[in-house]
Computed example of a mutant assay.
Amino acid sequence: MVKHLIELVLVVRWTKSLEDKNRLFWFMHTAGWCGFALVHYLGSLLHDLRDIFTVILILNAYAGWLCSIPLRYIYRKIWNLPPIRIALWVILCSFITALFWQVIKNINYWEIYKHGYRPDELIYYARNTMFSFSIILSWSLLYFGTNYYQMLQKEKQNVLKANTVAHQAQLKMLRYQLNPHFLFNTLNAISTLILIEDNKTANGMVTKLSEFLRYSLDKDPMKKVTLESELQALKLYLDIEKVRFEERLQVNFNVGEHCENARVPSMILQPLAENAIKYAIAVQEEGGSINVNVSKFGNDLLIELSDDGPGAEIKNGNLYRENGVGLANTRERLLALYGNDFSLVVSNNTPKGVKVNIRMPFEVGTNV
């Protein structure tokens, strides 16, 4: 049992070490040059060279280890260049490094194995540079291949995380949509409309309720939808609530030009509206209003949802409300989908109430 636990701990530590890009580089870098020395040592056995040649191999491997380190920092600088320029930089840097390394290898061989031999012409210092170039170029390709693999793995992890968070968000939405209290209030309002023979309004409310539930069930939480579609779903939700609150609930939309085609996460606004209904409209006898403003600024989409309720306690951009999960859920989804390229700010509205501002990349096109 203890043996298995020790093995498990070692595996976990080994996995974490490989996930660390810096540790992985130094491990592979050192292992690669040790492998280079070992292969050449085994090859030297076939030629029956003197034992001193082993020292030369070690020095050459160490020189290659040192000479190739600067390439890492150069390649970091050129990482985001166009592919053709990256290829040219890699070839140039690999050749220069190989030339410098080959000179060191020749000097090591002449000084140690040939007892201070000196060539007649300087050109001989660069002899066999193309072989060294192939080694350094292989090192460069392995570096880029490893980093691209790590990048793809990280993207895969982000997608899996986004899927998990989004599906959790959908489950939270379904919990609210099928919440007995929500359905009771909605169906009770429909029943009241039928009793007073306002069948037209009752029929309209049933239609909106079914459309809203169908929208939330049909939309894949990982598929981004147009802002126009998202706002239509939000209006359906608010229309249902307006039957309950009647004139106590006022809703205003102000959508900037060309913003309707922007892609946003599905069901991203409803939790914010839910909070406003619960904490701003329902708690005031006179009700209140919800304002939705959307605009484009540069390459960003700006969304603001505000209310004129009694407000709330806000510290360091965090909203303190009992059992409040809407904002936390929204922030988690945005983080999973956009990384650090978003912001969600909660602040006090003027003259009263709370407003939530969301900034996300302005994206258009097909579902992603």
Rank of each mutant, 00 (worst) to 15 (best):
Y62E: 09
L81P: 01
I74Q: 10
L81A: 06
V90P: 06
I74R: 03
N60A: 10
I69W: 12
A61L: 04
S94E: 09
L49E: 13
N60G: 07
V55E: 10
I58N: 08
Y75F: 15
P83C: 01
T54C: 05
Y62R: 03
S68P: 08
H47N: 11
P83I: 03
T54A: 14
N60K: 09
I84M: 14
W89Q: 00
N80P: 02
I84V: 13
V90R: 09
P70D: 07
W79N: 02
I86V: 07
L81D: 13
A87I: 10
N60I: 05
R76P: 01
L59Q: 07
C67Q: 06
H47Y: 14
Y73H: 05
S68D: 06
A63V: 04
V55S: 11
L57Y: 09
K77N: 08
A63E: 08
Y73D: 05
S94C: 07
G43T: 01
A63W: 06
S44K: 01
I86C: 08
L81V: 02
G64C: 05
I84C: 04
L45A: 00
K77A: 14
P82L: 05
T54Q: 15
I86D: 07
L45V: 02
Y73A: 00
L71M: 07
L66R: 05
K77C: 11
S94K: 01
S44Y: 07
L92Y: 06
W79E: 09
L88P: 00
S68F: 11
I78H: 08
I56M: 10
L59W: 06
A61F: 05
R76I: 04
H47F: 14
G64F: 02
A87W: 12
L46Y: 15
R85F: 05
I56F: 13
L49D: 12
T54Y: 15
L46S: 15
S68L: 08
R50G: 10
D48L: 00
I69T: 11
L88Q: 00
